[in-house]
Each structure stands twice: as C-alpha cells, then as structure tokens.
C-alpha cells in the first residue's frame, strides 16, 4: 500500500558562525535584534560551543530542508553538524534558537523526516470521508550524508476505515525505522455529524468534588 521514492541527499552547505562568549537571555535577544540567530553545538564528547549565525542565511538553508551543515567558526575550525532541534517563538513563525550536534558525515544518525502523501485515495470519494494524519513525520536512522527531504507515502489504494502504520511505510534503502511501527500515519474515516447537545437550564452547574454544594445565595 505504501511506497516510497528515494530522495536526493543534499550537498553539505558551508555556513560561517561566530563564537559567542556572552551568554544568556538578554544577550540572545540582542543578537536576534542584530539579525543573528543563537545556536549551540555539542556532541562527540567535546565541550559545547555557543555560536551565532546570520539569521537570513540559516533560515534560507533550514527552509530548504538542509539538515547537515559544515559549520566554520571564526576561530578557523570547521565541523559537520546536524540540526538537532529548532526552537520557535510563541506564534511558531520564527526560529529563535538552534541546537546542533557534531557528526561524522559517514556515521548513522537518527532524524525526524517529514512524510508526503501522494495519490488520490479511493476511499476519499465516499461522501463525508476525510483523511487524518495523526503523525506527519517519522524518526529514521540513516547515514548522515543520505538524509532524505521527505518520505513519500502512496495513499492511492486506501479505502474507508483503513490505515497506514509506520511499519507499512517502505523506507529507502539503508534506512531503518526508529519510530513505533504501530504509529498510524494516515487513516480514512467518515465524518459523523456531531450530536447537538440537549439544552439544559441556565442554573446547571458542575458537580463539586468532595464536599457538599454550598447553597447559601450571597447576593442581596
């Protein structure tokens, strides 16, 4: 039912970074105002290094689904880093911090990869049918140099009340699933009309847990 097409791995882009010596919330705010994005690099049993990137450059790279970067710091060092975690602002429209982990380009890493659903499901032609995606990404293990942009899942054969689990998604060669195999990635259900709740009196109040309801009306 589910098929995947191998996707292309990116060339590792190089990005310049400045080492941060002043740390903390206020300093990070100042950096963001100055058009920088604070980040941290850790892993491979080395001390963490606090760095900052040019916000526009890193945002462009991240929006083009780049996962592995060749980070060149201003002290002349260069190392391959994997984007581990992004922190977003409260509206979810701006990256505020980046976590990166040092990697060897030939080591196997665990990453979360987006799923793209292709094909027109047969079941969606039924009146009221809709597709749900409880999970839109899967955690996989693969070579750092072969991280796919997305995994394609073919849903064209799906019917009503059918579901595709993570284990059914065929991964490109050399990749193994880390997520729970029973995780549902797509299912087709029929939308049931929501029952109209019966009208109750205005005085309806919820039950008070433990203790008698205080009945003394305090209003004059």
């Amino acid at each position: 039912m589910a098929a995947t097409a191998p996707s292309t791995a990116h060339d590792t882009p190089t990005i310049e970074a400045q080492i941060r010596t002043k740390l903390g919330t206020n300093e990070c705010r100042r950096l963001r105002k100055a058009g920088k994005l604070p980040a941290v690099v850790y892993g491979h049993q080395q001390d963490p290094v606090h760095i900052s990137f040019d916000a526009k450059t890193i945002n462009d790279l991240l929006h083009s689904h780049v996962r592995v970067l060749d980070v060149r710091t201003d002290d002349g060092k260069s190392e391959h880093c994997l984007v581990k975690e992004l922190q977003w602002n409260h509206l979810g429209n701006k990256i505020v911090h980046l976590d990166m982990t040092r990697i060897d380009i030939n080591e196997r890493v665990t990453v979360e990869v987006e799923l793209t659903f292709v094909g027109d499901a047969v079941g969606l032609k039924t009146a009221g049918a809709f597709m749900e995606h409880p999970a839109t990404s899967l955690e996989i293990e693969c070579l750092a140099s072969q991280i796919p942009d997305a995994i394609k899942v073919d849903v064209s054969g799906m019917n009503v009340d059918e579901a595709i689990s993570a284990a059914e998604v065929t991964l490109p060669e050399g990749m193994t699933l880390v997520s729970d195999g029973e995780l549902v990635v797509a299912s087709i259900a029929i939308a049931v009309a929501e029952p109209e709740p019966e009208e109750e009196g205005d005085g309806s109040e919820p039950e008070v847990i433990g203790g008698k309801k205080d009945e003394d009306g305090a209003s004059e």
Partner: peptide
C-alpha cells in the same frame, strides 16, 4: 463547561506572557 470541579468559584488571576 466542566462536568466536575473542585471549587465552585475562582479568583480572577492575571494573564501574563505568551502561550508556551
């Protein structure tokens, strides 16, 4: 509305910050 509550009335409280 809730089905069961521990207390019938609450103080107003103060809303601060953004949704975390």
């Amino acid at each position: 509305m809730p089905k069961r509550v521990k207390f019938r009335k609450q103080q107003r409280g103060v809303l601060k910050g953004n949704a975390q």
